[in-house]
Simulated scan of single mutants.
Amino acid sequence: MQRFRDRTVIVTGGGGGIGGATARRLAQESARVGVLDLNHEAAEAVVAQIREAGGQAAAFQCDITERAQVEAAVAGVQAQLGPIDALVNNAGWDIFKPFVKTVPAEWDRIIAINLVGALHMLHVVLPQMVERGYGRIVNVASDAARGGSSGEAVYSACKGGLVSIAKTLAREHARHGITVNVVCPGPTETALLDSVTEGARDPAKLVEAFRSAIPLGRLGKGEDLAAAIAFFASDDAGFVTGQVLSVSGGLTMHG
């Protein structure tokens, strides 16, 4: 498939498990991919994989919590790859603690990365999409936003914010030819899951509990999420906006 021929897409957190898989999937379908990540080496590694496979991509080190860095990265993508057609707000971070054991400094970091960072990306990219009369935005939230998740209160709140803003922006910008949708991963094999489970008393037991609770019998993989994200970012979803899709192996079955 070449659904993204002549399209430029930004993927934040593009050096990670879901982000890397998404960047590779989009590039396989002929997208020019701007891979943004705080870890520049990780972003470069994904870009190298894409280029080795014959795709087009460029890496940009970016702390999405810093507005100036977001503006510089977006400008860099435009200069190297062209006008931005799609944005995948994927970057995220969490800690695994009961809410009453967290401290405000932890809230600040979780909110800055998971919510404020996405707001920066949206605020910088949306005006360009409006001007061109076209855009595809995909927020990567979490099923924690839809059903709650013990030990992830602030993270859940942030991901709920990504769902809510997607629905609002979908309404505000439908007339501009812009769609805004949300993909909600369930437990997925990523470095973030590893960091979350490290806070548990028995990480292996927690991971096995996740796996046992999933009807399809396994944790998600980055590629599972990439397929859903690619759909929403493509013109196949041109008449779909303001929607939320769980990709969780049946762990959650929201209507």
Rank of each mutant, 00 (worst) to 15 (best):
I110D: 01
I110M: 08
I110S: 01
I110G: 00
I110T: 10
I111C: 04
I111H: 03
I111Q: 02
A112R: 02
I113T: 11
L115G: 02
L115A: 12
V116W: 07
V116E: 07
V116P: 02
G117P: 09
G117D: 10
G117M: 11
G117Q: 07
G117C: 13
A118T: 15
A118P: 08
A118H: 13
A118N: 12
L119I: 15
L119Q: 14
L119R: 03
L119S: 07
L119F: 15
H120M: 07
H120W: 12
H120F: 06
H120G: 02
M121I: 11
M121A: 10
M121D: 06
M121H: 08
L122I: 12
L122A: 09
H123K: 15
H123G: 10
H123A: 14
H123S: 15
H123E: 15
H123Y: 13
H123P: 07
V124F: 04
V124Y: 04
V125W: 00
V125D: 00
V125P: 00
L126R: 01
L126V: 13
P127E: 14
P127T: 14
P127W: 14
P127C: 14
Q128S: 11
Q128E: 09
M129Q: 11
M129R: 04
M129P: 05
M129A: 09
V130L: 12
V130Q: 15
V130G: 02
V130I: 14
E131T: 11
E131K: 14
E131Y: 07
E131C: 06
E131S: 11
E131R: 13
R132A: 12
R132I: 07
R132C: 07
R132G: 04
R132N: 06
G133W: 09
G133K: 05
G133V: 09
G133A: 08
Y134L: 06
Y134P: 03
Y134V: 06
G135C: 15
G135V: 14
R136A: 01
I137G: 02
I137C: 10
V138Y: 05
N139K: 03
N139D: 11
N139I: 06
V140L: 05
V140Q: 01
V140I: 12
A141T: 00
A141K: 00
